[in-house]
Design a protein around this nucleic acid. Sequence first.
DNA 1: ACGCGCGATGTTAGCGCTAACATGATGCCT
DNA 2: AGGCATCATGTTAGCGCTAACATCGCGCGT
Lengths: 344, 344
Amino acid sequence: MSIEKLDTQRKRRASAVGSRMEDVASLAGVSMITVSRAINTPDKVSLATRKRVEAAIRKCGYVPNLTAGSLASNKSRIVAAIVPTIDNSIFAETIRGLSETLAAGGYQLLLGQTGYDEHNEEAMVAAFLGRRVDGIVVTGIDHSALTRKRLRQAGIPVVETWDLTDRPIDMVAGFSNVGAGHAMARYLLAKGHRRLGFAGGADGRTRARLTGFMAAIHATRGAHLQQVLLPAGTSFHGGREALAALLDLDSSLDAVFLSNDALAVGALMECARRRIRVPQELAIAGFADLDIAAEIEPALTTVQVGSRKIGEQAGQMLLARLAGQTVNNPIRDLGFAVVPRASA
Amino acid sequence: MSIEKLDTQRKRRASAVGSRMEDVASLAGVSMITVSRAINTPDKVSLATRKRVEAAIRKCGYVPNLTAGSLASNKSRIVAAIVPTIDNSIFAETIRGLSETLAAGGYQLLLGQTGYDEHNEEAMVAAFLGRRVDGIVVTGIDHSALTRKRLRQAGIPVVETWDLTDRPIDMVAGFSNVGAGHAMARYLLAKGHRRLGFAGGADGRTRARLTGFMAAIHATRGAHLQQVLLPAGTSFHGGREALAALLDLDSSLDAVFLSNDALAVGALMECARRRIRVPQELAIAGFADLDIAAEIEPALTTVQVGSRKIGEQAGQMLLARLAGQTVNNPIRDLGFAVVPRASA
DNA sequence: ACGCGCGATGTTAGCGCTAACATGATGCCT
DNA sequence: AGGCATCATGTTAGCGCTAACATCGCGCGT
């Protein structure tokens, strides 16, 4: 028995380098738990002890092993976020808002990009839950049955974003895509356009925008949705191609709604190249109000949806729940607004 | 003694929900290690056993706790990446390339954004090392002494990106910013421009581009670097403001080099608004060859640097090292190329 | 002087998993 | 038949940390 105790060089698995909390503890002449407290809850330790521990930490170059801490405390201080892509994209702003909000609360961000593939989402959710992340943010409200089930059973706060529903998995921060599509159609119709086109990605949110867009058009005498192009990607180049394709199919279009600003800016560029006057000959409208929308010539009429705010709100809801509070309003409609500019 | 063994309901800390490997093991009638092997190294387990374990996993809805696995195996299967920002940005492409390469190798990405603040970088590196990430990718080659020391001592592969040095912390994938700045100056000078301006962020890479840019100008008779504006941000709007500010200071400029394409596109837009003919009255050049550069009217002359490839290469180097291989060429010069287009 | 509360610190027992070594079964060569 | 790889599976002992429950000492009211 005591032989064992004497065995200070006891068998250790190769754990690479670095000192452990035990080393710090013995250097400071305290127990491990005191070191733990000095790090995590400094006001539970007397000032003198804290100073000694801090000195020992510096001397060892100790970096706490958060993996071990997570396992013991069942808290990871990591939040995962899953977005379709961060390229040129509306989601980059959301991620920034989220990442900054979480950082302020001491949480880190594990990022996944699905490339708009539901299959990827499923795998990522599983992997992230396996990491025992403390919370998770997903894009949209369409998820596979398995994904929904896993998220519900995980017992962690979940925020769906960029859309709205009465029955979220847990919480949701976004806006009505159907409403936004509808509003844009009404705007274009009010401007007198009657021969409308639409292009966008093939995801659920784009489809919802299209649903609203169509509904308003069908309710208007003499108005027609002449052409729809899905999927059209999310790049500037894709926007040029989409516009070209739409006009090839029907050159009589008088307004086109692109379901994101990168596409719309690309469309504007194609118009410039073809010497199509915007908005006189063809009106162009985008979605999401990226930075560039206000700057381009002609300035882009678009729908402002608070991309960054979505991330911030999602972060705040998570932080509140992680702090044990009840989120009073778990379904957050952040609204949208058609921003009239020169292009439509 | 045996009383203890009988205590099946032994005291457990509240570990939220979910089943553990032990549950799967007993359901499948095997030991835990067999479950572990069935999950992580399936070919070390007989087919029949594997099938039984998989069935048990499905029945329990078991999600392996990767935190526990990481602690036990001293491998996290997470790689961290630190970039200044992912907004509108050149780094978004790098992150995508990295994230996809890593995903293919079974690694996940923990993302940090510094907002171009060295202080943030230091804190993030510490936090990520605390997570015992298996590798780390940082932007640039300028890091605080403490950060460098920590990275060196961490004993994990480190890739610096978006620049080049003979003495990397570990590995580096990028290009010569000095060389790229120099090449763009030579290009503009060869086009006959002599009154040059520059604007960009205040980071080390922009300064390196400026250094090269200045060197080429100073070596040319009659050429002058009239104005330099730092920092100018990285947004389209910032580009418009930068161009306006440069022209206010010196309206005789005949070429302006903006150190990233978002700025350059903003500058083009400001020119459009002011009815300045590009490139006849003023040449505009950008950096990084974003998607939009080729699409805008006039198309943007820029420096193509393989943003995405940087991420892919960084990912490949990490994967190789994590697979225990030696990386034969740890200093990867991915080169750059001036892309002549209409704007300069 | 006594007991009580409270702040500071320590002890014990895990968190859920895997490395390393051990064991057992099978086939195959000589 | 004996010995020896080889494959499949099991046992033991941690990985480095923290929750939960002790314990200790001190000041304070009475």
